[in-house]
Amino acid sequence: MDVKGVMGSVTFDGEWITITKKEVGQQQREYRIRATDVTGTRLKPATRLFHGYLQFVLPGSAPATEERGLMAGGRPPQSDPHSLSIRYSANDGAAMLMAAVEQARS
């Protein structure tokens, strides 16, 4: 299961969540999280005007706060390794990915 986001993607193979990000002027970075280690998930669907996000919460860490402002649109910062901004067209795929992760957690 794969969801293309803004400057990155999230892949879930049933056990591992892989978040791949490519920031401007940076090399591509990859973060791997075991689905059973996730303590919570957050999904904010995108609208036609603003990007949404999906985020995975791990034990001992608080969820990244949403940045305010016109450019951020209520999303976590790009530097947060456990979240990814998504476009409106990716809402359905992101919802299915989050449901699969929630099922794998339990």
Rank of each mutant, 00 (worst) to 15 (best):
F50S: 09
A35T: 04
T47Y: 08
L58V: 00
N91Q: 05
A99Q: 13
R75H: 04
F56S: 01
K44Q: 07
G25D: 07
Y31I: 10
F12R: 01
K44C: 01
L54M: 14
V101C: 11
G25C: 04
A94P: 02
G25L: 15
M96W: 07
Q55N: 12
M71N: 09
R48N: 15
G14I: 07
P59W: 06
I86P: 00
P77V: 06
A100W: 06
L97M: 12
Y31E: 07
S79H: 04
G60D: 08
Y88H: 14
V6S: 06
K4E: 14
M98V: 15
A72Y: 10
R48K: 15
A95V: 10
Q55A: 13
T11I: 13
E67S: 11
T18I: 10
Y53R: 03
T18M: 06
G8I: 01
V6P: 06
I19D: 04
Q28T: 12
Q28F: 13
G14W: 09
S83F: 08
R29D: 07
Y31V: 08
S89D: 11
V24Q: 10
E15L: 03
G5E: 00
A72D: 06
W16C: 09
H82M: 03
A62T: 07
A95L: 14
A94K: 04
L97S: 03
A94L: 05
V6F: 14
P45N: 14
T20C: 13
Y53V: 08
G74C: 03
P77M: 12
V38C: 06
I19A: 06
S61K: 14
T47S: 15
P59D: 10
T47W: 09
R34Y: 10
D37M: 08
R105H: 11
G40Q: 05
E30S: 13
T47F: 05
T36M: 12
R29E: 14
L97E: 04
R42I: 11
G73C: 04
T36Y: 05
S83M: 09
D92W: 05
A95C: 07
R34Q: 09
K21M: 04
V10H: 02
D13H: 10
M96L: 14
G25F: 15
T41F: 14
E66H: 00
G40A: 14
Q103T: 10
M96C: 07
E66N: 07
R34D: 03
E67P: 02
Q55W: 01
S9G: 14
T18E: 12
G5A: 05
V101H: 05
R34I: 02
P76E: 01
R29L: 04
T65W: 04
S106P: 01
M71E: 11
G60A: 11
D80F: 02
I86C: 01
N91G: 06
T41N: 08
V38L: 04
A95F: 01
G40I: 05
G5L: 00
S89G: 09
R87W: 13
E30G: 00
E23R: 04
S9N: 15
G69P: 02
G60H: 01
K22E: 14
A95I: 06
P81A: 12
T11Y: 13
T36L: 14
L97V: 04
R42G: 13
D37V: 05
E23T: 07
A62E: 14
Q103R: 15
N91E: 02
D80Q: 09
A46T: 02
A35H: 02
T18N: 11
D37C: 06
